[in-house]
């Protein structure tokens, strides 16, 4: 290996990683500072280490209820997405049928449509159904992009399983539901995990619909955070702490899915 070239690569990589990590570090750093230190003293690490900001979030109902609301609708959404997507992905990966490519394409367009386009009618639709400001409304609205996402990811994983397995099972007298639940799903465990992860992520980060369809009872954390942003005299420390807490779930799961991230994004975002 050409030594000088190798060193250039490492330098570039280290520089990029610094660029990637610094902004996150800065927020984490800030979440452990008091507001006086944030505004008064410019320091690279917390001089006056405090957990007060986190204490505020865990004791103030308007903060922690945001997390609970988000978790509720994200959980509903992920479960429903996977339940409807599993059989559909199986159908797409195993059979060809009238209009299969077109339905697949149609799902893709829904994944790609900006939520802003559907915002108006969603508002009217959920008002008519009396679902405004409920977790179900947000969960249903997020199905729009998460169901196609789950179908695409699962289809990719299922296509990797040889069809002979299905045929052998049917010859052995398995019914479709029994085969699907006891043999097939265990085979694509990783795929189900990745699909669940991406559904979770995209429902967790979505702001526009979650903010428009809720006001008080189901207000998600992403909306709670923007509220403090618009208020004057901000509590930077608490804001940073809230931000750190929203990263935690993703940061934990990322290690487990590291080998599938590229795959998930390649197929999931498509």
């Amino acid at each position: 290996m050409d030594d000088r070239r190798f060193r250039k690569r490492v330098v570039f990589l280290v520089l990029y990683l610094a660029f990637a990590i610094l902004p996150v570090y800065w927020m984490v750093n800030m979440s452990f500072k008091t507001n006086e230190e944030i505004l008064g003293l410019f320091s690279l690490w917390p001089k006056d280490f405090t957990l007060d900001n986190y204490r505020v979030i865990f004791t103030d109902v308007s903060w922690y209820s945001g997390y609970i609301n988000s978790l509720i609708y994200v959980a509903i959404n992920t479960v429903v997405s996977l339940l409807v997507a599993l059989p559909a992905a199986y159908a797409f990966s195993r059979y060809s049928f009238l209009g299969d490519k077109h339905v697949f394409f149609w799902l893709l367009t829904n994944r790609m449509t900006p939520p802003a386009v559907f915002l108006l009618p969603f508002f009217q639709l959920y008002t008519t159904l009396g679902l405004m400001d409920t977790h179900i409304a947000v969960a249903l609205a997020h199905l729009l992009f998460n169901v196609p996402l789950a179908v695409w990811i699962l289809e990719g994983f299922m296509s990797g399983i040889p069809r002979e397995i299905d045929e052998t099972a049917y010859i052995d007298g398995y019914s479709f539901p029994r085969f699907f639940l006891t043999i097939f799903i265990p085979l694509i465990k990783a795929g189900v995990g990745v699909a669940a992860f991406f559904c979770f992520m995209f429902s967790w980060v979505e702001l526009l619909m979650a903010r428009t369809l809720t006001s008080v009872n189901a207000k998600p954390i992403v909306a709670v955070m923007t509220r403090t942003i618009s208020a004057s005299g901000m509590d930077w420390g608490v804001l940073a702490a809230a931000g750190v807490l929203t990263i935690v779930p993703g940061a934990i799961v990322i290690w487990f899915v590291r080998n599938y991230i590229a795959k998930g994004f390649a197929m999931g975002r498509v």
Binding site: M27, L239, I254
Partner: peptide
């Protein structure tokens, strides 16, 4: 990959602070 998995509004917040 970390930055891909940060909620988008927190991405905004991070840079707002930064």
């Amino acid at each position: 990959a970390i930055s891909l998995l940060i909620p988008w509004n927190v991405v905004g917040t991070i840079w707002q602070i930064f």
